[in-house]
Amino acid sequence: MTTPASTVQARDLTMTFGRTRALDGVSFELVPGVTGLLGPNGAGKTTLLRVLATVSAPDAGSVLTLGLDPRRTDQRLDLRGRLGYMPQEPGFHAHFTAFEFVDYVAILKELHQRRARHEEVRRVLELVGLDAVRRKKIKALSGGMRRRVALAQALLGDPDLLILDEPTAGLDPEQRLRFRELVGQLGEGRTVLLSTHQTEDVVALCQQVMMLHLGKLRFTGTPLELAGLAQGHVWHSHKRDPGALGAWRTGTGQHRNIGNPPAGADLLEPTLEDGYLLLLGGDQFEEVAA
């Protein structure tokens, strides 16, 4: 599935912590636009994003990002100038104001010309809608605002590649909406990779979706294709179907079952979440069987 437009090419990425295989031969390509990285906790999402952000090196395998090889020092430094990274739990100097913090990261990003740097800091803070509170101390900001400060620093220097680790975690619905609007815009002409375990984020935002589970890539494709996996595997019933991999009672009082339906079942149009659950459930099923 090589497309000439691909901006990131990963081959056989493998990474082991002790006895855990965080990444197990992961290969994929990214194209401009928003790609969602789905997976349950502990799937290896953060490890993968850290590798792409050049924070850690894989034990084996290779990445070529924006045509640059992070194994080579000079190219790695070039690459870092062109990527923005929002860690899952960004640390803050709590006594800094939002402006100071982003300004500090701008210095780490080697934006040295003072005037221009401050302009850039104001620009990214305005982008994430924190213009008005930029002079408040970070410790005085709400959790949602802190997430946006973390996002703002990733936007410094208008990077070609944005790597966002669980950017919507802890946001309320309104903040989530604003965030989607923003990331949707950012995805135009840029490569954005965001990890999440919220399938709604993927439906709302992503042109591409990858699913990682237990260090292995289980799916790459479009959200529609992921939903399509569950075609013919979702059905309605009055009681929980014992043959289902998973089922829950919906608001209508009916049960929504996922798995292999019995003959003549009342089949439903699958959603992306169904596809995701089916893949997850399938894995669990295999584990039990093995």
Partner: peptide
């Protein structure tokens, strides 16, 4: 120790210089 260590690693400023 350094709250911005993680972000710093992904930034071009040399860590040894820091």
């Amino acid at each position: 120790i350094d709250p911005t260590y993680e972000i710093g690693l992904a930034a071009p400023l040399g860590s040894f210089r820091l």
